[in-house]
């Protein structure tokens, strides 16, 4: 009988632990992720009054009446500015991803091939800028790229250009800032992936007569596919919605959707429009997010 009582206690204790362990984080994320997302969806369908959002649900003769307002979306679809901005955000994000991959892949590959005792330091040196303030590093590029800045002075000194050229506040300065900020996000997953690569595969390929170049293309690159995809998504997704970099380095002409959202919210006080912009942005990055999720769960196995 005491055995049974103990069993009941045990089951209760286990269920209790489980309930808390799952319940606490669930509540946390439902409150701070799920509900906020539902709220911006709701607000994107609401009418914007002067200072507040109109209520969607009104009571008419005792019956609830749902009032969906598509104004924001209609405006989003008709005003070509939005479409152009989404397109240019994706273009900048894609270009950033591609350049990061072109710089980062060889870099990660060389890191892995470096002597084992320096690898720890090499990784640290990639991580270090990541630990120091992102904002300040972007600000530093303002100094570098200014008309009378370091880069212009260097180019004139080397005789490449005659007089100062404008780099700041152009798509070039934006791209430099984006690649600079997101490069570690490309290098680190690639390094993690490549360092797990069994060197015996490369030796086997060489043994079977493949040249180093062939081995690289036929063995190394296919085997690091997961790292490439993870790195690319980690760069692309936040790059699409980037706000700080275009604000500080991009000048007023570069179109990025993060800035449009910011302006709709802070300057125009149009919460409904800002929410609609955000909802469309989420839809845009849903696919890359799903790809990233798939590869991360596969990598975890």
């Amino acid at each position: 009988m005491s055995g049974l009582a103990q069993m009941v206690d045990e089951v209760r204790a286990r269920l209790g632990g489980r309930r808390w362990l799952i319940g606490v984080p669930y509540l946390w994320y439902v409150l701070l992720v799920l509900i906020p997302l539902l709220i911006i969806i709701k607000i994107s369908f609401s009418e914007m009054l002067i200072t507040e959002v109109a209520s969607m649900l009104t009571w008419r003769q005792g019956w609830p009446s749902l009032h969906l307002n598509f104004d924001s979306y209609v405006f989003l679809a008709t005003d070509t500015l939005y479409f152009d901005t989404y397109l240019s955000s994706i273009k900048y994000a894609l270009a950033t991803t591609l350049i990061c991959l072109l710089i980062g892949y060889p870099f990660a590959y060389f890191m892995v091939r470096s002597p084992a005792h320096v690898q720890h330091t090499l990784v640290m040196l990639v991580m270090l800028p990541f630990w120091t303030s992102f904002l300040l590093r972007i600000y530093a590029w303002k100094i570098m790229l200014a008309d009378d800045g370091v880069i212009n002075a260097l180019l004139i000194h080397l005789g490449i250009i005659d007089g100062a050229i404008q780099i700041m506040n152009t798509p070039t300065s934006l791209m430099i800032g984006m690649v600079y900020s997101y490069l570690p996000f490309m290098i680190l997953p690639l390094y993690a992936n490549l360092s797990k690569l069994d060197m015996r595969y490369l030796e086997a390929a060489a043994d079977l007569g493949a040249s180093p170049w062939k081995t690289f293309w036929l063995v190394t690159v296919p085997l690091s596919k997961a790292g490439i995809i993870a790195g690319a998504m980690l760069v692309f997704i936040p790059a699409v919605g980037e706000y700080v970099i275009p604000e500080l380095l991009g000048g007023s002409d570069t179109l990025m959707i993060g800035r449009v959202l910011w302006d709709e919210f802070f300057s125009n006080n149009d919460w409904s429009m800002a929410s609609a912009v955000a909802v469309v942005m989420i839809l845009l990055i849903l696919l890359p997010m799903a790809i990233l999720n798939k590869y991360q769960t596969e990598a975890a196995r």
Binding site: L32, G241, G258, A274, M281, I282
Partner: peptide, 21 residues
Amino acid sequence: SMASAPLVMPDVIVGLSLLLM
């Protein structure tokens, strides 16, 4: 998915949605 959403979602969306909540 909810736990990884703040990692990958652009900051502006996280900020806006949290504020409106």
